[in-house]
C-alpha cells in the first residue's frame, strides 16, 4: 500500500532532528510520502530514504478576487498548491484554477461553507477536497461535537456530488501523525463512509501524486524527495 499524508505543518524554524523523527515515524506508520508545509527547504540528506517528500504551500486568501494573483505568485515554489476554503466564492474560484491541486477544509468555518453548489463545482472540475482531521484530535467537548456535526453535513453534500476526497492529518509533531488505516478510522468521526475513506487514502492519493508529478509547478522546482 502506498499511502501519502499530504498535510504536515512544520513550525517556521524546525529543528532538523524533529523533522527527521517525524519522517521516521511516518515511515514506521507505513507512509510512502509526505507533503510538508514549511518555509525551510530541506536538502536531500535530510529526507528519509523510504519517503518521497513534496513541498506544499497552503494559501488562505481573504477574497476570491485576490486568489488568482496569489496562486500565480506561489505556483512555481510548490509541488502541491492548496487553498483553504474560507468562503463560498473562494471555493468556487479555486475549483476553476488548474494550478490549484485541491481545496482544504480544516476549521469549522471551512466545513460550514460546503454546500451542494461548492461540492458540485469541485466534482465537475475533478478537484479533490482535502479533509484535514487535525481538529478532531486537538478539540474537545462541545466544540468537537459541533465540528463533527458540521462535518457530517458537509460530507453529505460531498458524497452526493461524488466529490473526490483526500484525508490528511495536519500533524505538526511526530505524536500527531496517524497511520493511513487510523486516518481512515478517524474519518468515522467526520461521517466519512468506510469505502469512501479507503478510496480517499488509496486511489485519490495516487491520482493526486501523478497530478503533482505531471504539473508544471513540480517540474520547475527541485523536488525534495527521491523519485520512486
Amino acid at each position: 500500500m502506498s499511502a501519502y499524508d499530504f498535510h504536515i505543518r512544520l513550525p517556521p524554524q524546525p529543528e532538523i532532528a524533529e523533522v527527521q523523527l517525524l519522517q521516521k515515524v511516518a515511515a514506521t506508520l507505513g507512509f510512502a510520502g509526505l507533503a510538508i508545509e514549511s518555509s525551510k527547504a530541506f536538502t536531500a540528506d535530510a529526507v528519509h530514504e523510504k519517503l518521497t517528500i513534496f513541498r506544499r504551500i497552503t494559501l488562505v486568501p481573504r477574497s476570491a478576487a485576490r486568489l488568482r494573483a496569489q496562486v500565480d505568485k506561489h505556483t512555481k515554489n510548490a509541488n502541491l498548491l492548496v487553498i483553504q476554503g474560507r468562503s463560498k466564492p473562494i471555493w468556487l474560484a479555486a475549483a476553476e484554477i488548474p494550478a490549484v491541486h485541491m481545496v482544504m477544509a480544516r476549521e469549522i468555518e471551512d466545513f460550514m461553507v460546503i454546500d451542494s453548489q461548492t461540492a458540485r463545482a469541485m466534482s465537475n472540475q475533478g478537484k479533490p477536497v482535502e479533509i484535514c482531521l487535525h481538529k478532531l484530535l486537538v478539540l474537545n467537548g462541545a466544540i468537537r461535537s459541533r465540528l463533527m456535526r458540521v462535518m457530517n453535513s458537509a460530507m453529505d453534500h460531498l458524497r452526493r456530488a461524488d466529490c473526490p476526497l483526500i484525508l490528511t492529518s495536519g500533524a505538526s509533531r511526530a505524536c500527531e501523525l496517524r497511520s493511513p488505516q487510523d486516518l481512515m478510522a478517524l474519518s468515522y468521526l467526520a461521517s466519512v463512509p468506510e469505502n469512501l475513506a479507503k478510496a480517499a487514502m488509496m486511489q485519490e492519493s495516487k491520482v493526486l501524486v501523478s497530478a503533482i508529478r505531471h504539473s508544471t509547478s513540480a517540474r520547475s522546482v527541485v523536488q525534495i524527495g527521491r523519485e520512486k
Binding site: 478532531l136 484530535l137 505524536c175 500527531e176 487510523d182 486516518l183 478510522a185 468515522y188 468521526l189
Partner: peptide, 13 residues
C-alpha cells in the same frame, strides 16, 4: 465495532 474503537484510539494523544 472495530472502526469506532480505532477512531477513539486515534484521538488519544
Amino acid at each position: 465495532q472495530v472502526r469506532p474503537l480505532r477512531a477513539a484510539l486515534a484521538t488519544i494523544r
